[in-house]
Every structure is written in structure tokens, then in C-alpha cells.
């Protein structure tokens, strides 16, 4: 067991190193110059523009050779310094992420968890009832199959503009300053609801369908048949089926939670909701190396943690995995 996790840890470290390096490289492969893109926003006299650009390149360390920049990147990373954003100059990347990420977490975690729980329950439930399966599931199919942004825009238009029940922009009213008060919390929730709902609806069907299919697959698997032929009660078979069917669902959940730092660009654009997703998109557009690196670092960490959790859960839930742990040769 200890050896198993030691090896895992080594692999994870390697993955981390490779992924972070690739993500360091990718933005730098993009043609163009981030400083010029930044200063290009203001029309400057040529002489001044050159001096300003030179100065900024020096400040950002972009005048150094690539290998030096790469070394600098790792050294400052170990000091917990992710650099200064270019697009949101001069805000440190850590601060950009710290200020934006709560909005993403507040939206995505409840949406993912709720849809996962409801979807799984519903999917497992529907898989056993043909009539229900026939009627209700198709509706969730349609929701899941709907392009997210399009659905969100319709939701925003119908509930926001036409009916005027929910606000259509911002994380809380533009007429209020944040405080820990009932009215603020209610206001926040009111703004939060439509973005949440849109994410919930779209994800719900996916989990439900996944669960339903897995249950059906498991019920039909050899061991179920075998148990059935032995005369085991249906309930017992279903319990086994459910437990096995949960595995892929847990994997999916962990992965979803792992990439949470990437944010939800679509939600943000449609509801003008703050968060990291849109910033990341802008960062890519403006070649903001540091912000891109910073965000990806967290995405990498998130995915790796998720994977680790999956590994652990597999070991716990599925005893067969434990036997196969050493690999074919073991």
C-alpha cells in the first residue's frame, strides 16, 4: 500500500512538472508581444512608445532569454510569486485569482454538487421504472442537449427582461455595497440564482443519463446474471449495481471539481457575472503570460488532486482494484 502511494506521488509530481512546463510554453508560442498589445490600447508617439515598451519588458523580465525566463518562473513559483498580470496591470496574479475565484466557487460547487446528487438519484430511480424512464428522461435529454449559452440567454431574457423577476447582470446589485447583512445576502442569492439554475439544468441531465446507463449496464453484467441465477433478491443485485455504477460517476464528479478553477466563461458572458473564466479568455487574447500561467497552475493542481481522490476512492470502493494495483506483472 505504501509503495503504491509513493509511486503514485512520484507520478503526480512528474505530471505536475510536465503540465506546468507545457502551460508555461504554450502562451509563449503565440505570436506577438504582450507589451505591445497592452500599449497598443493607447496611441502613443513612436519615441515614447518604444521607451515605454522597453521599460515594461524589463519590469516583466520579458527581455531575458527564454531559458532564463523559465528558470525565473520556477524560482518565483517556489516563493509563491506568480508574477504581475499584464492585462490587469499592475495587479499580482495571486490577487487577481483570489478576488475572482470565490465567485466561480460559489456558483460552480453548488451547481455541480446539486446536479450530481439529484442527477444520480433521479437516474438510478428512473433506470428501474420503465414508465418514468420513458416520460421524464427525454426532457432532461433535451436540456442536456441544449447549447448552454443559448439556454442561458433565453433564461436571462425570459426571467430577467420579460418577467423582470431576476436581475440580469452582476454578482449583486450595482446599487449595494457588500456587507454581511440579510438584505445583501438575499440580494446576492437573487443574482446568483439564474446563473446557478442554468448550470444546474444543463449538468443535471448528463449525470442522470450517465447513472441510468451505468445501472442498466451493471444490472445486465455477468455477475448480476450470475447472482440472479443463484436466486439472490433483486434488491441485493441492485445495491451491487448501484455501487459499481457509482464509480464512473465519482470519477466524473472529481474531474468536474478539478477543473473548477477554469471557471464558467459562458455563464459569465451571458450574466455579466464576475469570475476567472472570462479573465482567462481575455488573458489569452492579450497574451498575458503570467495570468495564463497562474490560472493553469491552479487548474493543474485541481485536476491532480481530483485524480488522487479518485485513486483513493477506487481503492476503497472496488476491492478488485486493490488486487490489480501492482499491475500485470505483480
Amino acid at each position: 500500500m505504501g509503495r503504491y502511494f509513493r509511486r503514485k506521488l512520484l507520478i503526480y509530481l512528474l505530471t505536475f512538472f510536465a503540465a506546468v512546463s507545457i502551460n508555461w510554453m504554450i502562451p509563449r508560442l503565440m505570436p506577438g508581444d504582450p507589451i505591445r498589445a497592452l500599449i497598443g490600447r493607447a496611441a502613443l508617439r513612436a519615441e515614447a512608445a518604444d521607451k515605454v515598451a522597453e521599460y515594461f519588458s524589463r519590469i516583466y523580465g520579458l527581455d531575458q532569454p527564454a531559458w532564463r525566463q523559465y528558470v525565473n518562473f520556477w524560482t518565483s513559483l517556489f516563493k509563491g510569486d506568480l508574477g504581475i498580470s499584464i492585462y490587469l496591470s499592475p495587479k499580482p496574479v495571486t490577487q487577481v485569482i483570489r478576488d475572482s475565484i470565490p465567485f466561480d466557487l460559489g456558483l460552480l460547487i453548488p451547481a455541480i454538487l446539486c446536479s450530481w446528487i439529484v442527477g444520480n438519484k433521479f437516474g438510478a430511480f428512473a433506470a428501474r421504472r420503465k414508465r418514468l424512464d420513458g416520460i421524464v428522461l427525454p426532457i432532461w435529454y433535451v436540456f442536456t442537449a441544449t447549447p448552454y449559452m443559448w439556454l442561458a440567454i433565453l433564461l436571462a431574457y425570459v426571467f430577467g427582461v420579460l418577467l423582470g423577476i431576476f436581475p440580469i447582470a452582476g454578482a449583486y446589485s450595482f446599487a449595494i455595497s457588500p456587507s454581511l447583512s440579510i438584505s445583501f445576502i438575499l440580494n446576492y442569492l437573487k443574482h446568483w440564482f439564474l446563473p446557478f439554475l442554468s448550470l444546474f439544468i444543463v449538468q443535471l441531465g448528463g449525470w442522470a443519463i450517465g447513472m441510468r446507463n451505468m445501472i442498466i449496464y451493471e444490472l445486465e453484467a455477468d455477475y448480476s446474471r450470475y447472482m440472479e441465477s443463484l436466486g439472490a433478491p433483486r434488491k441485493l443485485i441492485r445495491r451491487y449495481a448501484f455501487r459499481n455504477a457509482m464509480l464512473p460517476q465519482i470519477t466524473g464528479l472529481a474531474l468536474q471539481l478539478g477543473v473548477i478553477v477554469a471557471g464558467a466563461v459562458g455563464t459569465q458572458v451571458v450574466f455579466s457575472y464576475p469570475g476567472i473564466g472570462y479573465l482567462l479568455l481575455q488573458a489569452v487574447m492579450y497574451k498575458d503570460y503570467f495570468l495564463i500561467q497562474g490560472c493553469f497552475l491552479f487548474i493543474v493542481i485541481g485536476v491532480l488532486i481530483a485524480n488522487f481522490v479518485i485513486d483513493v476512492i477506487y481503492v476503497i470502493v472496488d476491492p478488485r482494484v486493490r488486487h490489480g494495483m501492482g499491475g500485470e506483472t505483480a
Binding site: 427582461v161 447582470a169 451571458v270 464576475p274
Partner: peptide
């Protein structure tokens, strides 16, 4: 003066129609 960040024309239009 509350200067708002809006990412799309669509939202801006909706807010104008609502008087926001």
C-alpha cells in the same frame, strides 16, 4: 457614479430596457 463592467451588448441592452 457606478460604472459597471458588462461583457456583452446583449446585457447592456437588457439593462437599458429595465432602466438599470
Amino acid at each position: 457614479i457606478v460604472y459597471v463592467v458588462i461583457f456583452s451588448n446583449n446585457v447592456a441592452l437588457g439593462m437599458i430596457l429595465q432602466g438599470e
